[in-house]
Design a protein around this nucleic acid. Structure first.
Lengths: 141, 141
DNA sequence: TTATATGCAAATCTTTTGCAAGGAT
DNA sequence: ATCCTTGCAAAAGATTTGCATATAA
């Protein structure tokens, strides 16, 4: 079930971005930071390897990583927090290109929630299921 | 498949919170705002009904709604943005009490992703599946 | 060489907090 | 009457930006 570590250097090259020591160190920091580090945590970890790495660079780099699939962002960086009154749930399809959000409710989420509640002894109050990618319109472009 | 609107007044009472005009108007604003409004959008909508409602109240109220299950928060309010290098995915179990994050990979997410890609013509690059609630430790308390 | 990336510092937003006044129960 | 909520303004944090310098290709 473990995921193998992507080759950040190769992926950067592929997409036409430069490979810099900062980017590699920030990727190390992200990968080693355990689960779901904040920007600040990534920065603190990165400056242990190179104390000159700035917070601004970490911000910029993590955004880049998100664009090229080296990281998933938890939350919307560019705006204030969003809230959803539809608490019973569906899957949100978020287009990373145009920002549109579609709903998908063609799947029975209750069995999934059941599995989690029983398997993990976790009491669920709410959930959020999102996929990030390209909507049909943006694929056509 | 449409969700019926919860009775915000009743839920507030049940949980021992006061029913105030602001709370009801903010709930209206949230419910009517269309998909996934930002805090700012909710505020702007709310002040059309009552121009004296402050942003601080909207912030506080949306946090309350999240706690009592009237809203789902998209993102982590209290900290800087989080990033996850595990782009292949699992379900994150986020405890709203102690903030712990557990992983659950006892479910086959690929069939879900397949359904989305085929059903919605959406090209998935990444996903994020979270449930919010009480971890086993916090339930015991 | 040349365009891209970095670091710094300032600017801009977002979110939280303290406190006095108002209002629900 | 009491205690929870509100609004305001200030404070604290998070994120972005402009620009000069450094550097990968």
């Amino acid at each position: 079930m473990n995921e193998s570590r992507p080759n950040a250097m190769a992926i950067l090259r592929e997409r036409g971005y430069r490979v810099t020591p900062q980017r590699l160190k920030i990727y190390n920091a992200l990968w080693n930071a355990g689960s779901h580090p904040t920007v600040i945590e990534v920065h603190q970890r990165a400056i242990k390897e190179d104390p000159t790495i700035s917070k601004a660079t970490v911000y910029k780099t993590l955004q880049l990583f998100t664009e090229i699939g080296l990281a998933v962002e938890m939350g919307f960086r560019d705006e204030s927090t969003r809230y959803d009154p539809e608490v019973d749930g569906h899957i949100n399809l978020i287009c990373t290109q145009c920002g549109s959000v579609e709903d998908y409710d063609g799947i029975d989420l209750s069995s999934i929630k059941n599995g989690v509640e029983k398997g993990m002894k976790f009491k669920i109050f709410a959930h959020r299921f999102e996929v990030h990618g390209l909507c049909s319109k943006c694929q056509a472009k």
